[in-house]
């Protein structure tokens, strides 16, 4: 069992969990999302890729690419 709370990452219709303590950039790598294709927000605020993630953080990813 883990004694830490994971970081939750929510995107269009999907949810992931990663370990706290790593940087946003690293977390995106883990879930196979290019930083160039998303804007990362935490509690409604934009954060940069070097930001470290704390236990229990909830990130929402705003997808950048639109088509048509």
């Amino acid at each position: 069992m883990t004694d830490w709370q994971p970081v939750k990452i929510i995107t269009r219709g999907k949810e992931y969990e990663v370990r706290p303590g790593m940087a946003v950039k690293h977390a995106l790598e883990k879930i196979n999302i290019l930083p160039e294709s998303v804007i990362v927000t935490r509690n409604g605020e934009l954060i940069t890729e070097d930001e470290l993630l704390a236990p229990g953080d909830v990130l929402k990813l705003v997808m950048v690419i639109s088509g048509g």
Binding site: S37, V38, I39, L46, V64, I65, S66, G67, G68
Partner: peptide, 28 residues
């Protein structure tokens, strides 16, 4: 495109986030 998304979010512009349903799978 990423910079424009950030601009809209930071400026508080409410825009349509859902894609046109026909854009799905577009080559672009």
């Amino acid at each position: 495109e990423r910079d424009m998304t950030a601009y809209a979010l930071l400026r508080g512009i409410e825009y349509i986030y859902d894609e046109c349903p026909y854009a799905l799978g577009a080559t672009s």
